[in-house]
């Protein structure tokens, strides 16, 4: 059991800056995030896109913003638990007990949920039969590519993941690539390579097709794909891979006894506490009159939520308002002389 003052769920910009604000007032935090890297939507959805509305930063990419926030957090050395999703939250006297899907347990006075619109999950096929074979012969990511050796693999998608895997697997498997339109959105060099491999007969390409059905008794035997004009085509294949990016799902957050309104958590604007004492929600996930889904709003919300955490974590102490420019305490916490 890891004991801390505050457990922060979500390592996006809002969660990261909240941890900074907790550090400034002397509270320890641990961060849990379901993704395999730090940065949340900034890293997952738009690492290369410039952002123009971070105060005092005229232009930066999602990746630069994330790196700067990580740098700013360094004095507080928070533990960041990646690839883990918080599943369960339970009250125990003055504490919250938090469990992740990897079996890790935390004890914290407070929880700050900075979970964006929930956790990222792969976007799945809608075709009938696809659920039945998921995890057996139909996958949304590649964990062990050896299983595809000398087999037929049908890959769906038009982005870099689909193209890269089509190229990679064409060395040892029979690859069929299916995409809903003629244009691909991956890197040009990958698109050229796929077209080249098609000419060489190493990749079979079907465009303007989508998955229609997945069939088989105990084992996947064939799929059918549907052209824009409605025509169906059967394909015999051993495996199916789908790469349609990620979607955000509220997931287990919905089961923690919090009020939820249209996928968001209503909070008060004094300290961003939810209907549960000691659980705060900030960033895209929270709602209140006038809420803006901006990174800068998330920073403000984190600063206030951090102060809200102080009362429960340090019931016998008084929180003094201090500036980083002048307070010896704060400068000490920042490791400055």
């Amino acid at each position: 059991m890891i004991k801390t003052d505050v457990l922060v769920i979500g390592a996006g910009p809002t969660g990261l800056f909240a941890v900074h604000q907790l550090g400034i007032i002397g509270l320890k935090a641990e961060i849990v995030d379901n993704l395999d890297k730090i940065g949340g939507q900034c890293i997952e959805l738009y690492p290369d896109k410039p952002i123009y509305d971070i105060p005092a930063i005229p232009e930066c990419t999602g990746e630069e913003l994330t790196n700067n926030l990580i740098e700013q957090l360094k004095p507080f050395k928070p533990n960041i638990h990646l690839n883990e999703r918080v599943e369960e939250v339970k009250k125990d006297k003055n504490f919250w007990i938090i469990k992740t899907n990897k079996g890790k347990e935390f004890q914290a006075y407070n929880i700050i949920i900075a979970g964006g619109v929930g956790s990222f999950e792969p976007r799945k096929f809608s075709a009938k039969g696809s659920e039945k074979f998921e995890g057996k012969e139909l996958f949304y990511s590649v964990k062990n590519k050896v299983i595809f050796k000398n087999k037929t693999v049908c890959i769906f998608g038009g982005g870099d993941s689909a193209l890269d895997w089509a190229i990679e697997l064409s060395n040892t498997s029979k690859v069929i690539l299916v995409h809903r339109r003629d244009d691909f959105r991956g890197a040009q060099v990958s698109i050229d390579k796929v077209k080249q491999l098609e000419k060489e007969g190493k990749i079979q390409l079907f465009t303007k097709y989508q998955l229609n059905s997945v069939d088989g008794e105990n084992k996947l035997e064939k799929i059918s794909i549907k052209h824009d004009d409605g025509n169906l085509k059967d394909i015999k294949t051993d495996y199916v891979l789908g790469f349609f990016g990620l979607i955000m799902q509220l997931g287990p957050i919905a089961n923690w006894g919090l009020n939820i309104d249209k996928k968001t958590i209503p909070v008060n604007t004094e300290n961003f506490e939810t209907n549960e004492k000691g659980i705060f929600a900030i960033g895209d996930l929270c709602s209140y009159p006038g809420k803006l889904k901006l990174i800068l709003s998330g920073f403000h919300e984190g600063a206030l939520a951090a102060r809200g955490c102080f009362k429960l974590a340090r019931p016998d102490e008084t929180l003094r308002f201090e500036f980083t420019t002048t307070s010896k305490n704060v400068l000490n916490r920042l490791g400055k002389k």
Partner: peptide, 13 residues
Amino acid sequence: EEDMIDMAFEPNR
């Protein structure tokens, strides 16, 4: 936008 529609649920023309 078209790139993003690739990700949508059952897109058509």
